[in-house]
C-alpha cells in the first residue's frame, strides 16, 4: 500500500475508532507519518471519539496505591536524552514498550488545544477553552457565569456580575452529592474561581468569609454536573 493510496486514507474513521486489524493499523500509521493533513484530521476527530468514552467510573482506591508504588520504582523516560551510563533500576521491558506506544500515539495525535503556560488556570483560561460550555444563570444576587471544560476537567465560576454579599460574607462553591457535600472554592462578588469538576450538583451559597464546613444557607444556584 502506497502512502497516498486513497484506499489507505479511507481507513481514517476505523483508525480513530480502533477498528483496524494490526496490519491495517500499521499501514495507516505509516500513511500518517507522511501526511500532515491526515494527522490533523485524526486529531480533529479524536475528541469526538474520546467523548464517547464519557462513562466515568472510579477505580478501587487500592489501585491508586499500587500505581503510585510502581511509578515510584521507575522514572519517566526523557525522549531525546542520552541514556544514563547505567539506569538505577532497570525498567521492565513492558514499560519501555508502553512508553514507545505512548510516543507513537503522541506523534500521531495532531493538534487540538492551545497551550497554557501559567502555573494555574484562571477563569479566563477556562472560558476561552475550545470545549467550554458556558451557562449564564440568574440568582437572587445577580447573574453568575459558569463555564465547564471537560478537557481541563474544571469548572470556572465568574461572580463579576453578582452583588456584594454584605460585610463579612462571601460566596462558597460546593459539590453536593447525596450524603456528601464538599467545599471546593470561595469567591467575592468581583472575583471568579476555578474548581475541579465533581459529581452531584454544583452549589453556590452565601457564607461567612471564613468559610463554612457545610452550607449554612440555601443554595443560590444548583446545577447538576450532567447539565454542565
Amino acid at each position: 500500500m502506497n502512502a497516498h493510496d486513497p484506499e489507505v486514507h479511507s481507513l481514517l474513521g476505523p483508525y480513530v475508532l480502533d477498528a483496524l486489524e494490526p496490519a491495517e493499523r500499521a499501514a495507516f500509521e505509516g500513511h500518517l507519518r507522511e501526511c500532515p493533513a491526515c494527522r490533523d484530521e485524526v486529531a480533529d476527530l479524536r475528541p469526538a471519539a474520546a467523548a464517547l468514552a464519557d462513562t466515568p467510573l472510579s477505580p478501587p482506591p487500592a489501585l491508586r496505591e499500587q500505581v503510585m508504588r510502581l511509578a515510584a520504582q521507575t522514572r519517566p523516560v526523557r525522549r531525546g536524552a542520552r541514556p544514563a551510563s547505567r539506569p538505577a533500576s532497570r525498567p521492565s521491558r513492558r514499560l519501555w514498550v508502553g512508553a514507545a506506544a505512548a510516543a507513537v500515539l503522541l506523534a500521531l495525535g495532531g493538534g487540538l488545544v492551545a497551550t497554557q503556560r501559567d502555573d494555574t488556570m484562571t477563569a479566563a483560561d477556562v472560558f476561552s477553552a475550545a470545549d467550554v460550555h458556558t451557562h449564564e444563570m440568574p440568582t437572587k444576587m445577580g447573574k453568575v457565569r459558569v463555564g465547564m471544560s471537560h478537557e481541563m476537567h474544571v469548572v470556572a465560576v465568574d461572580g463579576s456580575a453578582m452583588t456584594d454579599p454584605g460585610a463579612g460574607m462571601a460566596y462558597e462553591v460546593w459539590w453536593a452529592a447525596p450524603g456528601h457535600t464538599e467545599s471546593v472554592g470561595m469567591f467575592q462578588d468581583d472575583e471568579s474561581v476555578v474548581v475541579p469538576m465533581g459529581e452531584g450538583d454544583l452549589w453556590i451559597t452565601m457564607e461567612p468569609k471564613a468559610g463554612s464546613a457545610t452550607p449554612t444557607s440555601a443554595p443560590l444556584l444548583s446545577l447538576p454536573a450532567t447539565s454542565l
Binding site: 486529531a43 519517566p76 508502553g98 512508553a99 503522541l106 493538534g111 497551550t115
Partner: peptide, 11 residues
C-alpha cells in the same frame, strides 16, 4: 514513563 513525549499542542 512517556509524559515527556506529551505535547499539549497535539491534544
Amino acid at each position: 514513563r512517556g509524559a515527556d513525549g506529551y505535547r499539549a499542542e497535539l491534544g
